[in-house]
Design a protein around this nucleic acid. Structure first.
Length: 192
DNA sequence: TCATTGATGGTCT
DNA sequence: GACCATCAATGAG
């Protein structure tokens, strides 16, 4: 094992507004333990989904079987299937019942990723994440997020850029809000 | 390089 | 039956 759970982010890390959490997640390490293999990717691009008032958020459609985990405690994974093909992974943010989450959009490969991870679908494919991870507690072994200092690697200092979210044109004024965040100049961003 | 389109299935109406 | 927080293949320029 490369990263010890000692570096796992605590529940309290996730208990803040999605917009703040999104920025805080940049540069952190997504870790999946699969038997003896540890897959690691550095989070370089995310999107914040603020809650039922945010017309781009799935939670704006109400509390359903699919969105239920979004309304639960922070630090759990909201995974869904999109276009019948790809999986997307979110991290539940905020307080209980808020319905906010952060979509993980791109990783910089660090260890054992299968192929590219630029884009939410590719990210899940590279990490081996699917619907079986729906509701997964990220404050547990096997799938968690760790502090960057868990690795003795040097990453360049990059500032955070905010842009409109991808693929949410249906959301009216909410589509234009700068809730997509990424590390400026990082080569592993999904799109310019 | 860019725009267009097909794949494919869970969820909600 | 329509929609979809995507991706890869295609073809025109």
């Amino acid at each position: 094992m490369l990263i010890s759970p000692e570096y796992m982010l605590p529940r309290s890390f996730y208990q803040r507004p999605a917009k703040t959490l999104a920025r805080a997640l940049l540069g952190k390490l997504l870790v999946r333990q699969e038997g003896p293999v540890q897959r690691i990717g550095r989070i370089v691009e995310v999107e914040a989904y603020l809650g039922p008032q945010d017309l781009a958020a799935h939670s704006s459609k109400g509390r359903t079987a699919r969105t239920e985990v979004m309304f639960g405690p922070a630090g759990h994974a909201y995974v869904y299937l999109i276009y019948g093909i790809h999986h997307c992974m979110n991290v539940v943010a905020g307080g209980q019942g808020e319905g906010s989450a952060v979509l993980l959009r791109a990783l910089e490969p660090v260890a054992n990723l299968e192929g590219r991870s630029q884009g939410p679908g590719l990210l899940c494919k590279a990490m081996g994440i699917d619907l079986s991870h729906y509701g997964w507690d990220l404050c547990s072994d096997d799938l968690f997020i760790a502090e960057a200092r868990a690795l003795h690697l040097r990453f360049p200092r990059q500032s955070i850029v905010a842009r409109p979210r991808i693929g949410v044109d249906y959301a009216g004024a909410w589509a234009a809000k700068p809730l997509r965040f990424y590390l400026e100049g990082n080569p592993f961003i999904s799109r310019k």
